[in-house]
């Protein structure tokens, strides 16, 4: 087994453990490269099927190609797709692009708040109906008690302290200082009512591993990751107003891998193109404590 095989097997094991242990399970799919690899791992684990909802938090400021891509794969792969949003904040135009909120507040409202209330079932969820070919109000309003998230330990400081199975309390709060022990592939699958567990199958992957795996498995990705002649590409995807591309000539997956191997980005954070991180003192600690992924 090579390194990618090992990472794949760890990820598949974790997804299967989650599926066996959590009745109300969902996977967060941000449409980015990491969570798309994670979705691919689910198809590996469950033989082409995805037996739990994929949840996307739609801020309505995502780059349009991302939504097109999401719905195309939903149809092609027969995915149980669900999205949630902060309708109130959007209607009240309490957003950064509308000039009524700073970046962090905007992130908290459109992402963290929307995520929290979509996961606990308080706000409306929209589910893709494969028969009518459109999103409809989801009748399932039960709280998701297991939430699969595609964070990687090497992305930034706070994520490196995560466990594979990481508990969140009733307020969605993560107690970094007191985490469960995790060894011998035994995970925290028991949890008190009202709390939930975040599950991280990609914790051991690096940015390079992600691209190597995309190349090996030929996983479709959004074209925004590639330089299409402008000499720029996105290294991390988010909302259009707060995401900036990096200088790069890489036009395809193998060129991205080659670029990463040169060490060109080794001293530049992967999320450096994400403006909200800077407003959060460089880390994501504040946002993540509030429930951000």
């Amino acid at each position: 087994m090579d390194q990618l095989d090992e990472l794949e097997s760890i990820g598949v094991r974790i997804l299967r453990e989650a599926y066996s242990n959590f009745k109300n399970l969902c996977m967060l799919w941000s449409i980015g490269k990491d969570s798309t690899v994670m979705l691919w791992l689910a198809r590996k684990a469950f033989y082409g099927h995805v037996p739990f909802p994929l949840v996307h938090i739609d801020t309505h400021y995502k780059i349009p190609e991302m939504i097109e891509y999401r719905d195309r794969l939903t149809r092609e792969w027969n995915l149980p797709m669900v999205y949630g949003e902060n309708t109130e904040a959007l209607e009240a135009k309490q957003t950064f692009p509308d000039g009524n909120a700073d970046r962090l507040t905007c992130c908290r409202l459109l992402k963290a708040e929307a995520l929290k209330n979509t996961l606990n079932g308080n706000w409306t969820r929209y589910r893709f109906n494969h028969n009518s070919d459109r999103y409809e109000v989801d009748r399932d309003t039960e709280m998701y008690t297991g939430v699969i998230v595609g964070v990687r330990a090497d992305e930034e400081g706070s994520r490196s302290k995560e466990r594979y199975f990481s508990p969140r309390d009733k307020e969605n709060i993560w107690d970094v200082g007191d985490q469960p022990p995790e060894f011998w592939n035994q995970f925290k699958t028991d949890f008190a009512p009202g709390t939930h567990v975040r599950i991280h199958p990609l914790l051991d992957w690096t940015e390079t591993n992600i691209w190597e795996y995309i190349e090996r498995e030929k996983i479709p990705t959004v074209s925004l990751y590639y330089n299409q002649g402008s000499g720029e590409r996105y290294r991390s995807l988010g909302c259009a107003p707060c995401t900036n591309p990096v200088q790069s000539d890489a036009r395809n997956v193998s060129e991205i891998i080659a670029e990463l191997r040169t060490g060109k980005f080794s001293n530049i954070a992967e999320r450096s193109g994400r403006a909200q991180d800077k407003d959060d003192g460089g880390g994501l600690e504040t946002l993540r404590r509030d429930g951000y992924m």
Binding site: A153, D154, E156, G157, S158, S160, K161, F265, S266, N267, I268, A269, E270, R271, D277, G282, G283
Partner: peptide
């Protein structure tokens, strides 16, 4: 340095 958001994992 790692916790300030650059590539290396703080636990490793």
């Amino acid at each position: 340095e790692q916790s300030q958001g650059i590539t290396i994992d703080a636990a490793r």
